[in-house]
């Protein structure tokens, strides 16, 4: 029996860990090969999309690059989203700007993510594609949802452009601020920031 390696309350950080699937160099080689498969739409590139996390680490970027290389049709993009883990769904959302599907195909994915309670999905949904295509009512509710759930509004693409001159958004923000104040709760700094951008 050896000396205790743990201290009370210690997390997993101080103990032995299994090696990750690959070193950085191995991950890069794997990704290069997978990108070539995706660009050629080789059968099985979707499997590369699924396993990219354990091959390359937790970043969303490798999956986004695979999607941008494969340029799947709208129906395939929607299937990858709906059959995806949270990480795969984020990658689809982040790739929408480049894939640029018809709004009739792409917006339902954005709207699905904006209904989620997983804030990483909400944040990923509010990229340039949403800025281009989301209707005013849905966009304002997305801004408000960020304030409710603590997603930094700096995440919202083209926030200043879309907020500029939006009197209805300004009204919603002021009402929310009043609700917070009535409850004895602080008004988030982000709210004042967005309110200033509206110019109202």
């Amino acid at each position: 029996m050896t000396t205790a390696p743990t201290t009370p309350g210690a997390g997993p950080d101080d103990g032995p860990r299994p090696p990750l699937a690959a070193s950085d160099a191995e991950a890069q080689r794997w990704l290069d090969a997978a990108l070539a498969e995706a660009a050629g739409r080789a059968p099985g590139w979707q499997l590369r999309f699924a396993e990219a996390g354990r091959r390359c680490g937790p970043s969303d970027t490798p999956r986004v690059r695979l999607l941008c290389a494969a340029r799947p049709e709208a129906a395939e993009t929607a299937r990858l989203y709906h059959q995806g883990t949270a990480a795969e769904r984020r990658a689809v959302l982040l790739a929408l700007d480049t894939l640029d599907p018809d709004p009739a195909d792409g917006l339902p994915l954005v709207e699905d993510a904006l209904r989620a309670n997983d804030t990483t999905l909400v944040a990923a949904a509010l990229g340039p594609y949403a800025a281009r295509h989301l209707a005013p009512h849905a966009w304002r509710h997305a801004v408000l949802k960020c304030l409710f759930t603590g997603v930094p509004v700096t995440t919202i693409a083209r926030l200043a452009d879309r907020a500029d001159g939006d009197g209805e958004l300004a009204r919603m923000l002021r009402d929310y601020a009043a609700e917070r104040t009535a409850a004895g709760r602080p008004v988030p700094d982000d709210l004042h920031h967005v309110l200033a951008l509206t110019g109202h």
Partner: peptide, 10 residues
């Protein structure tokens, strides 16, 4: 930053 929010807190 995308995990900073906490929807569980409502």
């Amino acid at each position: 930053p995308t995990h900073a929010g906490n929807s569980i807190l409502r």
